[in-house]
């Protein structure tokens, strides 16, 4: 058990390190030199060679690669990322300011899509082969085929532009609000983005839940549960208990997909989260921000995977209490 834990943490450490190295290497592999990378095109183009050398020297960009890498690692350790080109502010504070909004969207839709997807998937599995199952499967596959930004645009068209129920952009209105009013405002403006991400995350969840339960229902212990006289509801609980394992895995690992989706959805709704920040930074070629955001995302996803691995034993007694070795 302890060894397993160490191994798991070690593996995720390796993932993290690889991401950090990639993050360091990418801008240095990309075409153009460091000046193009940290400064906007207009400014970089107007520099004299002497100015270029001076800037490179000031940022330590003419040091050897190991030296640069050391400085980079040190920066990360201190939580000190580069400075945004566009905003002229430290990337770290910029990220912290935005990450809360994305957490709201991703967290909300993760919970909703997991609960809804698992419930529908289990229901389908229980009725597999019937028209109810086929209908649900077809409908979910259709929803799953809608690109997230298209779902977002459609929701925006119907509920915001058409019905006027929800505002079409932003996370807060301009007016000052406090207490409950503020909470209400925030929730109201989160409805459409969260709905979009929920619909987008529903498909994989449903399919995994369905196929996991279909698999469990073929097991002998289900036959036994039926034969010993349990009700259908009790039999279902037996099978669902084991089908929860893959479902929980997909929920936590799906976090990465949802974060990716958030980039697109926040763009549609002009939502001031991390995804929107990334998008704007790409357009403005604000690479330091891009680099920092990418690092933050990776850390989040790796943490989610780690939590999944550590939580797994709670669901599976075979991992929690491995059979003692015989002497």
């Amino acid at each position: 058990m302890k060894r397993h834990l160490l191994r798991t943490v070690g593996q995720y450490g390796a993932v993290l390190f690889a991401a950090i190295v990639l993050n360091f290497a990418l801008p240095r592999l990309a075409p153009g030199d460091a000046i193009d990378y940290i400064l906007p095109d207009e400014v970089a183009g107007a520099l004299t060679p002497a100015q270029r050398t001076e800037i490179l020297d000031r940022f330590g960009l003419d040091d050897s690669m190991p030296e640069q890498f050391g400085a980079y690692l040190g920066g990360i350790a201190r939580g000190d990322l580069l400075v945004s080109v566009r905003f002229g502010r430290p990337v770290t504070s910029l990220l912290l300011e935005r990450v809360g909004w994305t957490l709201l969207l991703v967290g909300g839709s993760l919970v909703l899509s997991t609960l809804l997807g698992a419930a529908l998937g289990f229901r389908s599995a229980w009725r597999r082969g019937t028209s109810a199952d086929t209908g649900a499967l077809g409908a979910i596959m259709f929803l799953d085929a809608l690109p997230p930004f298209f779902i977002g645009t459609l929701l925006l068209l119907v509920f915001s532009v058409g019905l006027g129920w929800f505002p079409s952009y932003g996370a807060l209105s301009g007016q000052e609000a406090e207490g409950l009013a503020l909470v209400g405002e925030v929730l109201r403006r989160a409805v459409l983005p969260v709905a979009t991400l929920t619909i987008a995350g529903l498909g994989p969840m449903y399919l995994v839940a369905r196929s996991a339960l279909v698999g469990e229902l073929q097991e002998d212990y289900v036959l036994m549960a039926e034969a010993k006289g349990l009700t259908d509801r009790e039999v279902r609980r037996h099978a669902a208990r084991n089908a929860l394992l893959p479902v929980s895995t997909v929920a936590l690992v799906g976090l990465g997909t949802l974060v990716g989706g958030a980039a697109v959805v926040e763009t549609v709704f002009s939502y001031p989260g991390l995804g929107r920040l990334i998008y704007e930074s790409v357009l403005a070629r604000d690479y330091p921000v891009l680099q920092g955001a990418f690092l933050l995302l990776i850390i989040t996803v790796v943490l989610a995977n780690l939590i999944n691995d550590l939580a797994y034993p709670l669901l599976d007694p075979r991992v929690r209490r491995p059979r003692p070795r015989r002497a």
């Binding site: 593996q11 390796a14 993932v15 690889a18 991401a19 990418l26 801008p27 592999l29 990309a30 075409p31 990465g256 997909t257 974060v259 990716g260 989706g261 980039a263 697109v264 990334i278 790409v282 070629r285 690479y287 891009l290 990418f294 995302l297 990776i298 996803v301 790796v302 995977n305």
Partner: peptide, 23 residues
């Protein structure tokens, strides 16, 4: 291990970042 690393990254984010850097 490399496969695990690849699967650990959020696809879309990786695509966006790679595309942004490589033009």
């Amino acid at each position: 291990r490399i496969v695990d690393l690849m699967l650990g990254f959020p696809f879309l984010m990786l695509v966006i970042v790679l595309a942004a850097f490589f033009g």
